[in-house]
Simulated assay, not measured.
Amino acid sequence: MAIPPLAPLPVPPLATDSEVVFNAKADATLLAEKQFVDQMNATTIPGINAASSQVAADALFAGQAADRAEAVDTNVSEQVAAAQVAAASAAASATAAESAQGSLGNLALMYAIALAS
Rank of each mutant, 00 (worst) to 15 (best):
L6N: 05
A7M: 12
P8V: 00
P8H: 05
L9C: 01
P12H: 00
P13H: 03
L14T: 09
L14V: 11
L14W: 09
L14P: 12
A15Y: 08
A15K: 04
D17C: 00
E19P: 10
V20G: 12
V21K: 01
A24D: 07
K25Y: 01
A26R: 08
D27F: 11
D27K: 15
A28F: 04
L30G: 13
L30E: 12
K34V: 09
K34P: 03
Q35S: 14
Q35D: 11
V37G: 02
Q39H: 00
T43K: 00
T44E: 02
T44H: 03
I45T: 04
P46Q: 04
A50C: 03
A51L: 08
S53M: 08
A59P: 09
A62Y: 00
A62I: 07
A65R: 05
A66I: 10
D67S: 13
E70G: 05
A71Q: 04
T74G: 14
S77M: 00
S77C: 02
Q79C: 13
V80D: 02
V80W: 00
A82F: 09
A82Y: 11
A82M: 10
A86L: 05
A87M: 15
A90H: 02
A90D: 02
A92L: 10
S93K: 08
T95E: 11
T95N: 13
A97S: 01
S99A: 14
S99D: 09
Q101Y: 10
S103I: 14
L104G: 12
L107K: 08
A108N: 07
M110Y: 14
Y111W: 12
Y111P: 04
A114M: 10
A114N: 07
